[in-house]
Amino acid sequence: MIELKHISIGYSAGNVVFSDLSAHFPAGRLIGLIGNNGVGKSTLIKTLCGYLSPLKGEYLIEQQSSDRYTIQKLSTLISIVLPEKITGFNLRAYDVVAAGRIPYINTFSTLSPEDARIAEESMETIGISALKHKLMEELSDGQRQKVMIAKSLAQQTPVIILDEPTAFLDYRSKHQLFDILKKLCGEQNKLVLVSSHDLDLVFAYADRVLLLEPDHQFTFDSPSVVKPKTLLP
């Protein structure tokens, strides 16, 4: 699904954050992305989403170089869930989920009955249909994250990337969230990539883990192999 071949990532040739990174992320897998703050997780996510181009190497999505995709096409392949809280402007849970249909709708932003059905089904899959008419500011952090995941589902992309989705959640909500993600990989064959500082959860749920370390070192392997490397000496 996604293949990285010796890519260097960063903001310019003089500001390389991580170099010579290679990994293959197949469909239907839950990939954990871990590493200390500042090591390059967010830069990698920005690169995977197409906000930044790789400085070197190849980034392939479905065997095609990422450069060959337009921003519109990318929006139907990769969806994102960010840690920022989205509130205000009369946004209700359903509005945010329905925003997942923006890549498919017309200039005047009117939802077809089919778009509305997909948005409602996405809410149902995540188990948040009851929150449909709630304002975003009325939701708990856990519920808000579920809304954002439902938005990604409505976007109908084969890849979902989540940037620190567990940051503001309590223990129970964190487990619920990873359960949902695992289910999406198994039942809908989605590739889910999650960056997180909750190492126990990542090792418990992920199929493979990408550990980014200082000095451009990385390990991409099963949780059992990566886990010992994260233990304090």
């Binding site: 989403c49 906000y51 921003i71 519109q72 990318l74 929006s75 139907t76 990769i78 969806s79 994102i80 960010l82 920022e84 989205i86 402007f89 946004l91 945010v96 925003a99 997942g100 923006i102 890549p103 932003s109 976007q155």
Partner: peptide, 15 residues
């Protein structure tokens, strides 16, 4: 409408 989420989301929605 996409910008109401935020700029990064808007970009991810093809805007």
């Amino acid at each position: 409408n996409a910008l109401l989420l935020n700029e990064q989301y808007a970009r991810n929605l093809g805007v």
